[in-house]
């Protein structure tokens, strides 16, 4: 059973008018504080003003490049396999230029409207080819087909990758650093941004 609570009001409150004036006063106080600026304001004036996103914010996808500018992706379909929204469509083909790299994506489409921005594709990628670190939102679209990002769009935002082509090789133990050792943080353009001292 619901409990009925009756509020006891004193004479001052029952007079109504003084309380009304007090309420208008609170409203006016906020009006002036917000109009003439204060550090206490928690909202931002979007879109003129934008909030800084945390460094691991997941934005729109991009595809990374090799040293020679070609796509890093080898069309292994790990991202499209793990994608819970099934929004990645890859068609694989032969690279066919005589290099050791055999397989490349002929087309690489991501349906950004279906994407749930979970970042699993980035986790699954064995080549560090797909990233979501552009820091951008997906822009609004007018037509359904514009929501597909194609290989060219994804590559346009991609930069070169700092990973060693083909892995570190048989001497990987020499260059392998365990957890807790010194680390370097690179920014989106691939420049050294931060040096972290190990524990």
């Amino acid at each position: 059973m619901a409990k009925v609570v009756s509020i006891k009001r004193g004479l001052w409150e029952q007079l109504y008018l003084p309380e009304l004036v007090r309420g208008v006063g609170i409203t006016l106080k906020h009006f002036f504080v917000n109009t003439f600026g204060s550090k206490e304001i928690v909202t931002v004036r979007y879109p003129e003003e934008k909030r800084e996103y945390p460094p691991r914010f997941r934005g729109v996808h991009r595809l990374m490049k090799r040293e020679d500018g070609s796509v890093r992706c080898v069309a292994c379909m790990m991202c499209s396999t793990i994608c819970p929204a099934q929004c990645i469509y890859i068609v694989a083909g032969e690279r066919g230029d005589g290099t050791a790299i055999e397989k490349v994506p002929v087309s690489f489409d991501i349906d950004e409207l279906i994407c749930v921005v979970c970042g699993m594709c980035v986790e699954a990628c064995p080549c560090d080819a797909i990233r979501m670190d552009t820091g951008r939102h997906y822009p609004p679209v007018d037509r359904r087909d514009q929501a597909f990002m194609q290989k060219e769009d994804l590559l346009a935002a991609g930069g070169p990758n700092v990973a060693v082509q083909g892995g570190a090789g048989p001497d990987w133990r020499e260059s392998y650093r365990p957890l807790g050792s010194d680390r370097q943080i690179y920014d989106r353009e691939g420049k050294l941004a931060k040096q972290i001292k190990g524990s």
Binding site: C76, M77, T81, A92, G93, E94, K103
Partner: peptide, 8 residues
């Protein structure tokens, strides 16, 4: 060759 991954 390269057409599809077998787990699909």
């Amino acid at each position: 060759r390269f057409q599809v991954r077998v787990w699909n």
